[in-house]
């Protein structure tokens, strides 16, 4: 009896593992999204947005809630690539606003979103700690080996843009670190651990007094488009489109340009 029990105890998890392995290969398109609760009083709109939109979208969310009584807007801010991955794994999202067309493409390729619209553009700036201790004036100062520079990793949008801008300027910069996202890069500047970093203009503005921004002409070559789209499986249905319309409206643009974004 006991031996049989033990054998079972070993066999059961193995069977589970096998089953998981088999189903794992075929799954990926399971529909888990809840049906839209149309007509209900309390509705929730879930917006997945790039981390750089945290401030502006939170503000627009409040505006949206005021215009649609009974509706709650929930945000999931993060790296665009991570968000895109979550959406393709059937995360219950209504709207996706990405920091790069490439990350939006993974969602549209999976037929999970309609035609995306570019709603803002973001340009790079050189961020230096308050007081600019290393006396950085332009992009060429970043190539000085004495200057400690932080860049975003090439895998994330701000890193790809940095490479483009540096290539356009014909400069080779050896950074001390390739950070995992733009906020982490900016933190290194805020703490004075690096002399300069390439981040978005909006991030420099959001950081306030702790960081100074220096614009440079080559940033023109590395403008980042931000696409937004309502998702086809949006649990909140039409509300998703209404939120996109708000972002694209003059009122939405006003909030975004105030934060440092360029109009498309």
């Amino acid at each position: 009896m006991s031996r049989r029990l033990f054998r079972w105890a070993v066999a059961a998890p193995l069977a589970l593992v096998l089953a998981a392995g088999l189903t794992g290969c075929g799954s990926g398109t399971a529909d888990t999204s809840a049906p839209a609760s149309s007509g209900g009083a309390a509705k929730t709109l879930t917006v997945f947005a790039a981390a750089s939109l945290t401030g502006t979208f939170t503000e627009l969310g409040t505006t949206f809630e005021a215009a649609h009584p009974g509706t709650t807007v929930k945000f999931n801010f993060g790296s665009s690539a991570t968000l895109a991955q979550q959406i393709t794994q059937d995360a219950p999202a209504d709207v996706f606003a990405a920091a790069s067309p490439a990350t939006m493409k993974t969602v549209t390729d999976a037929s999970l979103a309609g035609q995306p619209t570019t709603f803002v553009r973001n340009r790079l700036e050189i961020a230096v700690p308050a007081g600019n201790p290393a006396k950085v004036n332009g992009l060429k100062d970043l190539a000085d080996p004495k200057t400690k520079v932080a860049l975003c990793a090439e895998q994330v949008p701000c890193g790809a843009a940095a490479v483009k801008a540096l290539d356009a300027a014909g400069l080779t910069v050896t950074p001390v670190t390739l950070e995992q996202d733009v906020k982490a890069t900016l933190t290194k500047v805020e703490l004075g651990e690096v002399d300069a970093a390439l981040v978005y203009k909006t991030d420099v503005i959001a950081a306030g007094d702790k960081v100074q921004g220096i614009s440079f002409p080559e940033a023109e070559k590395a403008i980042n488009d931000y696409p937004i789209a309502a998702l086809t499986k949006a649990p909140a249905g039409d509300l998703a489109k209404e939120f996109v319309d708000l972002v694209l409206s003059p009122q939405g643009r006003d909030v975004l340009t105030k934060a440092g974004f360029d109009a498309p």
Partner: peptide, 12 residues
């Protein structure tokens, strides 16, 4: 990644 950063061959 916060303290040492990320650079291939050195801190990655």
């Amino acid at each position: 990644i916060t303290f040492a950063g990320n650079f291939p061959g050195r801190t990655q």
